[in-house]
């Protein structure tokens, strides 16, 4: 987190130096040191479309809408949110990448769509990070491992010890094969040699959660906000988190990668745009999107929803996406 903020600040500084512009009229979001004239700033003349590759009201919809509404404030034009769900976010992402590169169509995407899907589907128009502009990373959200409160394991160590002795016996409910909760467990299996019985439940209906609370499956990996109600009511016991740093919403939760190194692959959300944007509007979008993610309003939103803000941009963001590719390749290659 610290490291990222630093990198973010560096990127911000270099972006500033490049464009030599800043201070946006009309808003008071000034927690970024920005100064300079407005002459280089691009001013859109018609509504901007923000594509969200998930359904309206889905769990990922709000973060996209939050960004879009702040973008509307910052740019002073209407930003129309368009939900294009399906195909593991590839349909919406294709819509963004293949839009006219005029800065009037941008949108939300994530690490699996950008780093994993191209491996599975060579027809997708976004094979490398050169095929789009990586405007800004909005946030990470790690997967939390929890067990049914009636299960015997009180700690992460106990849980892992049991799984080690009884391979492929303990059920682990996920939201579907290839989803981030499943990916994390698979990564854990590769790094640790443990074997879980990963049970993919599908759909956003919380069926995986129901199955664990009902005692049908012993453990679950999911994002904290969706399980929080059951944790508070004492139906679920979180044991650990697939994350490299302390996860603020549950500060004392043991970090799984501290036991098995590399067993962490949080879900990451990005705002991207088509490649080859005109320089003027590109620079403005880069700057404005960083301001949004660093704003107090966005941070408050993130905190409330279990996200960890991480405003890296452009080359640095592209580097992160490229770093994820070998991990996905490894996962695809293993038959765990």
């Amino acid at each position: 987190m610290k490291k990222h903020t630093l990198r973010g600040a560096l990127a911000a500084a270099s972006a500033l130096a490049l464009v030599a512009c800043g201070g946006d009229a009309g808003t008071d979001d000034t927690d970024v040191a920005a100064a300079g004239g407005d002459e280089a700033r691009w001013q859109p003349e018609r509504p901007i479309t923000y594509i969200i590759p998930y359904g309206t009201g889905g769990s990922t919809d709000p973060i996209g809408r939050q960004f879009a509404s702040q973008l509307e404030e910052e740019l002073g034009v209407e930003v129309v949110v368009e939900n294009r769900e399906g195909g593991a976010a590839t349909i919406g992402t294709t819509g963004i990448v293949t839009a006219a590169p005029d800065c009037y169509t941008i949108g939300l995407s994530n690490d699996t769509a950008l780093a994993n899907q191209p491996l599975l589907n060579p027809d997708l128009p976004f094979q490398t990070t050169d095929d789009y502009t990586s405007l800004v990373k909005l946030a990470d959200i790690p997967v939390v491992l929890a067990v049914d409160a009636d299960a015997p394991w009180q700690t992460l160590e106990e849980f892992f010890a049991y799984v080690e002795e009884n391979p492929n016996e303990v059920g682990y409910a996920t939201s579907g094969v290839g989803g981030t909760p499943d990916t994390n467990a698979k990564l854990l299996e590769i790094r640790s040699g443990l074997e879980l019985n990963r049970v993919p439940f599908s759909g956003g209906g919380g069926e995986a959660l129901t199955a664990v609370v009902a005692g049908e499956v012993e453990s679950i990996g999911t994002y904290y906000p969706s399980m929080q109600g059951f944790v508070d009511s004492g139906d679920l016991r979180p044991l650990g988190v697939f994350y490299n740093e302390e996860y603020e919403p549950v500060p004392d939760l043991p970090l799984i990668p501290e036991i098995y190194e590399g067993a962490a692959k949080p879900s990451a959300y990005y705002t991207i745009a088509p490649a080859n944007l005109p320089e003027e509007c590109r620079d403005t979008l880069v700057e404005v999107s960083r301001e949004i993610v660093e704003s107090g309003e966005f941070r408050a939103f993130a905190e409330e929803n279990g996200y960890v803000v991480d405003p890296i941009q452009l080359e640095e963001l592209a580097a992160e996406i490229d770093e994820y590719r070998p991990i996905f390749e490894e996962l695809e290659g293993s038959d765990a």
Binding site: G86, G87, A88, N121, G176, V177, G178, G179, P200, S202, G203
Partner: peptide, 8 residues
């Protein structure tokens, strides 16, 4: 796209 394993 198949719901459980995500196969097209």
């Amino acid at each position: 796209i198949e719901q459980v394993t995500g196969v097209f």
